[in-house]
């Protein structure tokens, strides 16, 4: 998704202004003209300068505001992006309640079904093995606290 330099220039400059604004309350070191706000202010100022140059460039060239340049259709991209974001958000909210094994298995099955051959059995099989491997590597070997969730009651 290509965006005209006018848009990115304005966004960059606005971001720089926001950085400077957020740095205004930071106090200098005692008896110094410098402090925690010095660097963010310099960075913010440079972002405004670079954003302005980008904006001028965008005004000079005659590109469209937004352009889709991928070989895949935009709708396919949006659906895939939604699937990725939804998977991540679902993991964040569901894992503390349902537990890692169930969430990982369900998400992987859905993703594998969608992006591979649209057959539930192979998708479920691969998801089961992958969930088991990630559980063993991260949960058991590296001691990352992946929650068992619902399975805790079943197993113990």
């Amino acid at each position: 998704m290509r965006t005209n330099d006018k848009v990115t220039g304005v966004v960059t400059a606005a971001f720089g202004a926001a950085v400077i604004y957020a740095s205004l309350d930071l106090k200098n070191l005692p008896r110094q003209e410098y402090g925690a706000g010095t660097f963010p202010t310099v960075i913010g100022a440079l972002l405004i300068l670079f954003g302005a140059i980008l904006l001028v460039r965008g005004l000079r060239n005659r590109e469209v505001w937004f352009a889709w340049q991928h070989p895949v259709p935009l709708i396919t991209f949006i659906m895939t992006l939604a699937a990725i974001c939804a998977s991540i958000v679902a993991y964040i909210y569901l894992t503390p309640i349902v537990g890692f094994p169930v969430v990982s298995f369900v998400l992987l099955t859905l993703l594998l079904y969608t992006f591979h051959h649209r057959r539930w059995l192979p998708a479920g099989g691969i998801a089961l093995v992958a969930t088991g491997v990630i559980w063993e590597v991260f949960g058991q070997l590296l001691h990352v606290p992946l929650e068992l969730g619902l399975l805790e009651k079943v197993i113990y």
Binding site: I84, S87, I88, Y91, I92, T95, P96, F100, S104, L107, L108, L111, L112, F115, H116, H117, I126, A130, T131, I134, F138, L142, V144, P145, L146
Partner: peptide, 26 residues
Amino acid sequence: GILFPLILMFCIVGAFAANNAMFDIW
């Protein structure tokens, strides 16, 4: 089509693993 969903799950767990924080996944 098989590889990318597995990498996605690996990324999620990997991001969580450094500080055991869901915020890192965001």
